[in-house]
């Protein structure tokens, strides 16, 4: 399969990339890892006239701990996220989720910024960022904007990015106290998109009450979904079998799955949201308790 032709740019700085983006706007696409964009171009579902390859802009690739925050550059590859010792120490849900993305070759190229900008509701990291209440920092010639992850995913393959903007980095407030997270995924075969996947992040106080609950759902809606009702239900409660079961039930009711001939009926997927939410919460709790 051969894509339509395009004009190719390989800027060496972020500024240069933004200038090109500002000039060509929606006629241009940013090329990062290309693991979603290039297949779309080959199938001619997307045919940008201009391709702005940011792979040489190394300043966009980093994982930085900064006070109580973590900053991840848009060009950071899943390989780096999977191996990162900073993340293993601070937010191991990220390492875990990265192992579920595509396959090793895809992770060697694919970037976190690219996949969030692509906004596939079956993408794994949208759910992780939603569960962590992450923020997306965008940049354009007009300056930067900070967008809450929940406002970033507008619809399937549609984000809050303007045509002259690109995703610059992801910022996450680091969890405090006893905390743990888990990404649990159900897939037909290794490396496939999720049938359903759930990201869960918990913090508990010394009495075992929940003081942070983040739940993100993959492949069961027009975007990655934040199970807000389930999160607020759990907040302040003791974490036990009953509350976890109820939380999972609420998360399942918040899912908006559709029937699909490849990965199952809406009913099945909704049932799986409950099962996987339970598993993710139990695992997150176990990790928070350090057992």
């Amino acid at each position: 399969m051969i894509p339509r032709n395009f004009i190719y740019f390989s800027p060496s700085s972020e500024k240069e990339a933004l200038e090109l983006l500002n000039e060509y706007k929606s006629d241009a696409r940013i090329l990062a890892g290309g693991m979603s964009l290039i297949p779309l171009m080959k199938m001619r579902l997307v045919s940008p006239s201009y391709l702005i390859d940011i792979n040489k802009v190394e300043s966009l690739s980093y994982i930085k701990e900064e006070k109580n925050r973590l900053r991840i550059g848009a060009l950071t590859r899943y390989y780096e996220i999977e191996k990162s010792s900073t993340l293993k120490k601070l937010l191991p849900i990220m390492n875990e989720a990265a192992t579920w993305v595509g396959d090793p070759q895809v992770r060697n190229m694919g970037t976190i910024g690219g996949s969030l900008s692509h906004a596939d509701p079956s993408g794994d990291f949208g759910s992780v960022i939603l569960a962590l209440n992450g923020q997306i920092i965008t940049s354009s010639l007009n300056g930067q904007r900070t967008i809450k992850a929940d406002d970033f995913f507008v619809d399937s393959f549609t984000t809050a990015l303007n045509a002259n903007e690109m995703l610059k980095e992801i910022v996450i407030d680091l969890p405090e106290g006893m905390n743990g997270g888990a990404y649990v995924k159900l897939e037909r075969k290794a490396g496939d998109f999720a049938i359903v996947a759930v990201a869960a992040q918990l913090s508990i106080d010394s009495k075992g009450n929940c003081n942070y609950a983040g739940i993100g759902l993959t492949s069961v809606g027009p975007t990655n979904l934040k199970a807000k009702k389930a999160e607020s239900f759990l907040l302040g409660k003791q974490l036990n079998e009953r509350t976890i079961d109820e939380t999972a039930e609420i998360a399942a009711s918040e899912a908006r799955p559709i029937d699909d001939p490849l990965r199952g009926s809406a009913e099945y997927k909704r049932a799986m949201v409950k099962v996987l939410t339970k598993r993710a919460l139990n695992l997150a709790l176990k990790r928070a308790r350090g057992v």
């Binding site: 390989s10 290309g34 390859d53 792979n55 390989y79 895809v106 060697n108 190229m109």
Partner: peptide, 28 residues
């Protein structure tokens, strides 16, 4: 030809990649 099968795997600057899902210009 859709980055599923890995038959086109090559080592690109030290990392394995699927060469069907990259442009030659990226290899400059």
């Amino acid at each position: 030809d859709t980055s599923n099968c890995g038959a086109c795997t090559v080592i690109f600057n030290g990392k394995s990649v699927k060469s069907c899902t990259m442009f030659a210009v990226q290899a400059n």
